[in-house]
Amino acid sequence: MSFMKITASGLAITVACAAAASAQSRDQVQVAGSSTVLPYATIVAESFGENFDFPTPVVQSGGSSAGLQQFCQGIGENTPDIANSSRLIRESEIATCAENGVTDIMHVQIGYDGIVFASDINGPEFAFTPADIYKGLAAQLVVDGELVANPNTTWNEVNPDLPEQPIIAFIPGTKHGTREVFEEKVLAAGCEESGAMEEITAMSDEDTAEAACVATRTDGRSVDIDGDYTETLARIQSDSNGIGVFGLSFYENNMNTLQVATMSGVVPSTETIASGEYPVSRPLQFYVKKAHIGVIPGLKEFVEFFVSDDMAGPNGPLAAYGLVSDPELAATQAAVEAEETM
C-alpha cells in the first residue's frame, strides 16, 4: 500500500502548509499598478532592499486601472499596499474603495513624465503641433462646414511644412493611463487650437464636439497599442513610416533607434517638461493605504524613501532614468511624513 501512504503523506503536507499560511504574516511591501510607474518603482524597490533592513518590495504591473481595482478590493494582507498610477484616481474608484473599507488613502506624487512622439531614426524629422496630430489622426474633420471622414493620407497634406510621409501612428490603447493624457493634451488641445472645436460646437453641441475631438480614425492609420512601449517600438521597426507615442524615459533608453519629434517647437527633455514649455506631460503618482502603515513593516519607510531627494530629487536615479522631478517635492515629503490623506 505504499501508493496510498505516499498519497496520504502528500495530502498531509499540503494541509500542514495551509495551516502554516494562516499563521504567517506578510513582511514585505506589495505594490501594484501602472506599467509607466513600474520602472521607477522597481528602481526604488531595489535600492530600498539594498540599503534598509526590510525585504525588497514586490512590484506587480498590469496598468493603472487594474492596479487601482486590486488596491480597492479591501484592507488586508492579500491586497496591495500601494497602487501606482499614471493618472489621478477616479471618483468611481474612490467610491469602490470606500465600499470595501479602504477609506484613508494617501496620494503621493513622485514627479512628471513627458509623452513624446518618436519615429525611426533614419526617417525625416518631424516638428508637430497638437493641431497637426489632431488633423492627422481625428476620425472626422470639418471640411467646408461639414463633418467628413478624415481625408488626409500623408503628413504634408495636414501641414505643408511636414514631410511627405504616409500617416501611420501607434498610439496607446484605452487601457493605458497614457491614453487619457494623449486625448486631453494632444487631441483635444489640437482640436481647440485648429478651431475645429468651435465649428463642431456651432454645428451641434459641446458634448458632441468634445467626443468628436478625441475620436481617432479607424481606417488603419491610427493604431491602438494595448501592449507596452516595446510593442510600439517593434511596430515602428517593422514599418519605418510609423510615428509612435512613448514615455520620455523609454525614448531616452532607445535613443539609438528612435528620433523624437518636437511639439510646438519644443524638444522634449526633463528640463523643458519641468519648466512647462513642453506641453504634453502628466504627473505620476501612487496611492497608499494608510490602514496598512504600521501593519506592513517598512511601508512608511519605503514611501518616504521613494520621495526622498536621494531618489526622486533632480540628481537622483529616477531623474537619471527619465522622471521629471517635481519642484514641489518638499511639500510631498512633508505630506508623507504627516501621513496626510486625500
Binding site: A16, C17, A20, Q28, T42, V59, Q60, Q70
Partner: peptide, 24 residues
C-alpha cells in the same frame, strides 16, 4: 499567473518550503 500577482518584480529569494511556498 497574470491574475494572481505572479507577474511581479521580486528580488528576495523565497524561503525553503513549506514556508517558502507563501513567499512572493
Amino acid at each position: 499567473l497574470l491574475l494572481i500577482g505572479m507577474v511581479a518584480f521580486v528580488r528576495d529569494y523565497p524561503d525553503a518550503p513549506p514556508a517558502g511556498l507563501f513567499d512572493p
